[in-house]
Write a protein that binds this DNA or RNA. Sequence first.
DNA 1: CGTAATTTTGACTCCGCTCAATTGGCGTGG
DNA 2: CCACGCCAATTGAGCGGAGTCAAAATTACG
Lengths: 247, 247
Amino acid sequence: MYAVTANKPDASPNKFEVTCSSCNMRELCLPGGLRAEDLPRMENVVYARRRLKRGEALFAAADEFKAVYAVRSGFFKTSIVDGEGREQVMGFFMGGELLGMDGIGASRYNSTAIALEDSEVCVMPYGLIEEMARELPALQRQLHAVLAREIVRDHGVMMLLGSMRAEERLAVFLLNLSKRLTRRGYSHSDFHLRMTREEIGSYLGLKLETVSRLFSQFQRDALIEVEQKHVRIVDIAGLERVLAARS
Amino acid sequence: MYAVTANKPDASPNKFEVTCSSCNMRELCLPGGLRAEDLPRMENVVYARRRLKRGEALFAAADEFKAVYAVRSGFFKTSIVDGEGREQVMGFFMGGELLGMDGIGASRYNSTAIALEDSEVCVMPYGLIEEMARELPALQRQLHAVLAREIVRDHGVMMLLGSMRAEERLAVFLLNLSKRLTRRGYSHSDFHLRMTREEIGSYLGLKLETVSRLFSQFQRDALIEVEQKHVRIVDIAGLERVLAARS
DNA sequence: CGTAATTTTGACTCCGCTCAATTGGCGTGG
DNA sequence: CCACGCCAATTGAGCGGAGTCAAAATTACG
């Protein structure tokens, strides 16, 4: 019955202490918008948690779709590989963000999700979500909102890939990262990149050498300070100006 | 109460003869997968139809989100315009395909939808869809599937924009159009482009001159025949080989 | 501690963009 | 009905931004 591929059986992980009520990611996550008295019912949907080590796959493209995942801690990338073996990174995901929604329509995931550092996710079997969404209109609304937000996010990436130059793409990338980290209580200016230059390049539609050169260029222009994976944004307004400066 | 922008009031259009049961787009549309006995209930959701003339906007970015639309006949593009005034075409839509889903999360549409020929759409107020989805699990499933399919579609575009060369992009575009037209009973090899070279270019992340040159090149290579907006695919396998030929 | 992976930087190339001129279609109005 | 003007499309010439190839430096990791 359980066709397990990249996934470990979902039944085994620690089922204890799974409380959305006490989770500080709650507002960013699927329970966002639920009233306090409905939260316990939501916890029936959050079936379990699962820990992943760096490099491990949460799910892979073509795996049987069973659940959607919420990042509890850590950092992920999702990507798809086309017939010719070329990888395209679709996105990076951090605490409170949802993974695996591209599997909903079909019975299989469309992309592969890989942990870029040791991470933990909440497992939310899709059947349970569906069921609960029929009973809790607020959850239904939030689910639809999350799906639609993913569409809007993708549109932003399409805009970036379709009509921005290399510098603009990297500026958008850094500003977006900064914004998301801020919402999670981290420094808005000082952070550690979890992904390689090649993964950034794939995401932005650039080659890794170009990404590296742009990092150096931004540093020369006193917009950021880079040392390997550590980035410090020195001049946010300057980065925003990179976007405004349509030659 | 009714903040109408690009939309005419939804109450006015012809409310007669709105039957999903007899619509030949049904299988591709939101009612797809519903059992025959549930279809009449679906018709309560399909509130009305609306006709649009070529060039007219079905909705515009930042308009109040009220409804999702299904294309009954005709052809649309959706696009977003960024702060710098640059337009990015997000997609082209034909019979049975759904428009406006990017507004679900927020209270406003994220993109603008414009008819590229005289068209007709079914108006499906989102509130009604939500309500009905709670009662009809099959509709709920289909709605989620449609949303997820949009995400998967966007991922395909991101792949295209992020890691394909110009020829490959146009080949994918033509093959995709051909496939969708075939499903709707049109010729798979002979069709009329509803959009300009500039719109194709925007969608594919290319300049209009590049699109034009590629059309000419494909014609020289005996893959297609082009005459202005009329395209005839001569060698489908050849177009597919354009993708396979990773230099 | 040694090997592999990642990052940086340089030199050169080439694909797609820019600028420009021309042609062709089509709707409008004289 | 034709002339006009406008918009779309084609094509050419030249340029430039990002890719490719290559080598060195630095770091990560078993």
